[in-house]
């Protein structure tokens, strides 16, 4: 519903450079396009420029040179408050935004700024609370919530703005396994409903499981822009950018030399593939038959 299908890219970044006032060059010429409905992970070490890049998408930062177009419009020429109608941004630390005494009002802050009032506002806030499973805390003080809950409250406060694009800075940091899964499930659902999701993370298992496209940023440059599977084939680039292969991807690659062809990224698929190969070997040994092809050729 929110994504407009205009045929042109939703976000277009052209030769973007960003130099901080202190003189540091944070982005050294980045070009990319993002289409409506994508689910993108942005990865790289701390200080690589991930946050600096994504803050250009909603005008929080302005290019030193180059342009960032949002739905064809130059973000440098629009106020952040207007860009906020299209791009929502969830900060890493929820305490950087929470300031109301009632959770409802905290979630309503953004939509109110967009001019929403009355029933529509209430509906939006309540459905955002429901999405992050905080309906029970609607009228409570956000200060009483756990850190994980506050993190979801911050997410809800952006969801309620119903922006076409949602950017999240490390949405699962400090969350336990179930909380992380819950947040990623919310993002997947939003993505299915047409929202463009861009999330920054260090967790490569998260990337493997949830992203369709990954942007690897290192030293202010876009080093790799590919689907996760292709990124994982470039271990060298990954480690020199301060990242690690997820364990299953590493195992898949090391076992490929032994006739295991699995790239599903799950241990179950890998085990099944090992089992298949193992039984083939047993069969081959018993039939004294030589098989030079891959697992599929033998079947």
């Amino acid at each position: 519903m929110p994504a407009k299908l205009t045929g042109r890219p939703l976000i277009e970044v052209r030769q973007l450079k960003h130099i901080y006032r202190s003189g540091g060059e944070a982005l050294k010429g980045i070009a990319l396009t993002i289409d409506a409905g994508e689910m993108i992970a942005v990865v790289g070490r701390n200080g690589a420029g991930k946050t600096t890049l994504t803050k250009h998408f909603n005008g929080l930062l302005r290019p030193t040179t180059g342009t960032v177009l949002l739905d064809g419009q130059d973000t440098a020429k629009l106020p952040v408050a207007q860009l906020a109608r299209t791009v929502g941004y969830v900060f890493q630390n929820p305490d950087h935004q929470i300031f109301h005494e009632r959770l409802f009002d905290e979630i309503a802050f953004g939509p109110r700024n967009l001019g929403l009032r009355g029933d529509e506002l209430t509906t939006r806030v309540d459905s955002a609370l429901k999405a992050v499973d905080l309906t029970d805390y609607r009228d409570r003080d956000p200060g009483e919530l756990s850190r994980g809950q506050r993190k979801r409250a911050a997410l809800a406060s952006v969801l309620a703005m119903e922006t076409a694009v949602i950017i999240l800075d490390e949405p699962t940091s400090g969350q336990d396994y179930q909380e992380s899964e819950q947040i990623m499930a919310i993002l997947q659902e939003l993505n299915r409903r047409g929202h463009t999701i861009i999330f920054i993370t260090h967790d490569m298992e998260l990337v493997q499981e949830h992203a369709c496209r990954v942007l690897l940023i290192d030293d202010g440059k876009l080093v790799i822009d590919s689907p996760p599977r292709e990124l994982f084939r470039q271990e060298q680039a990954l480690t020199s950018a301060g990242l690690r292969l997820p364990p299953t991807a590493e195992l898949e690659q090391r076992l490929a030399a032994f006739g295991i062809h699995s790239d599903a990224g799950t241990v179950e698929a890998l085990a099944a593939s090992i089992a298949r190969r193992s039984s083939q070997i047993t069969a081959r040994d018993s039939f004294k038959e030589n098989c030079s092809g891959g697992a599929a050729a033998c079947q």
Partner: peptide
Amino acid sequence: EEVRLIGQAQEARAHD
């Protein structure tokens, strides 16, 4: 740094 981040977080929620 905190002043900057909080300011940005509220601006991103369309606060003027």
